[in-house]
Design a binder for these strands. Structure first.
Lengths: 216, 216
DNA sequence: CCTTTTACTTAGGTATACCTAACTATCTGG
DNA sequence: CCAGATAGTTAGGTATACCTAAGTAAAAGG
């Protein structure tokens, strides 16, 4: 009953992410996210249950203590890899996701620690998502989507929930990156765009995009 | 006829290394090096032939033009990874081999280039082995094993052919690392040790070890 | 020269992780 | 309350990469 660790890590990572929007994660949602067929996922879930990494409850799965720990470790490695790529190797924030997806399965705990130490224990990835510490503890900030701000509200961008390089390039070109202060000038009615002011410039931003930008 | 790229890279890398000591590489030697059974290797060779990466000649295999190129690319990624680990992340030279064995299959050409650029295009790995450039060109130095020096000969260490962490730690503790000048004080007869002088200190060094240290 | 060893391959079998097609159960709407 | 959609699983099959055991062929030694 040997197993491909990378594959398991991939599953746990997906389950972890999906758990934040759907508590017991459904097989079909997981299959969709992993771009696999439901039966493949169904089969792998059995193995994960057997390994004590997930529990099957009411038509779905949720991570066990151990599965959660493992998932967070992968996320830590992913985000630290992204930081290595941007801060040390000069990648742009839109170029790091795919590379980090491969690195997260290749780096050791030792390397994970060295990256963290070399970068002064960064608290977030380049997109602003928190990096769990060695014990899996996240620093959680109270944030809300930019799309929920009212006219004349201000906020500081904490994170950007986006992986598409094109969109990330666009956001960076507007200066919509973590730690930047945004002011909502106007909110168009009927789900229309927001007019935001970022470092002196004014832009119209669709609700869809604005909902992915978390501010505090 | 899909394939596991990492596995293929592993085979090509081994064939490349073994070719330097045995020209058509034998199946058994390759199996031994990869820690696999001869039939497994035999089978995989067929696939590599089919893919045009190796040719089967007189009871052995040798890399094709394309296989050679691919092998050198993996070696470049391995050695650049090692440099990243030592020069940027603070690993010691005895800690990088295994980590690099995993990284070499995970990093993209883009990352390979960024590591090279960030380090000012290093010409060698931490053990002194040349890093092929993007076109697969190696800078080859004329070297000879330290064990072949005569009494009172001097040399500058170019590379150390060793992967065992314990041995590498030992050598580093004596200061036997690339770019260091060594003087052979005495050569004991009947295959006995060499008495070498490194940065003011005198050490006895077995022939076996000395043969792995290449000097110019 | 024939025997033994060595090297390699063939044959047959395992495990992992995926697939499609078919079945089952559960939820939903008319 | 039953028809149809939706979600999940079972059954059966594929490909990769490995294995052991059983050949075969060639090299080496008495």
């Amino acid at each position: 009953m040997e197993a491909d660790t990378s594959r398991i890590e991939e599953y746990l990572e997906s389950i972890y992410k999906l758990q934040q929007e759907q508590h017991p994660v459904s097989t079909s949602r997981l299959a969709e996210h992993l771009k696999l067929s439901p039966p493949s996922v169904s089969e792998m879930i059995k193995k994960l249950v057997h390994k004590g990494l997930v529990n099957q409850i009411e038509k779905g799965v949720c991570l066990t203590e151990e599965g959660n720990k493992m998932a967070k470790k992968v996320i830590r490695r992913h985000r630290l890899s992204e930081r290595l790529l941007t801060d040390i190797l000069g990648f742009k924030w839109d170029e790091v996701h795919d590379e980090a997806c491969r690195l997260e399965h290749a780096i050791s705990t030792e390397m994970e620690d060295r990256i963290a130490a070399s970068l002064g224990n960064p608290r977030t990835c380049p997109h602003g998502h928190p990096i769990p510490d060695k014990d899996g503890v996240f620093i959680k900030e109270i944030v809300k989507p930019l799309s929920e701000l009212k006219a004349m509200d201000k906020g500081i961008i904490v994170s950007v929930f986006e992986e598409d390089p094109k969109m990330l390039q666009y956001l960076a070109s507007l200066g919509l990156i973590p730690d930047v202060c945004v002011k909502v000038e106007e909110v168009a009615p009927f789900g229309g765009p927001l007019i935001v002011c970022v470092s002196g410039s004014r832009y119209a931003l669709g609700r869809e995009v604005a909902s992915k930008i978390k501010v505090k």
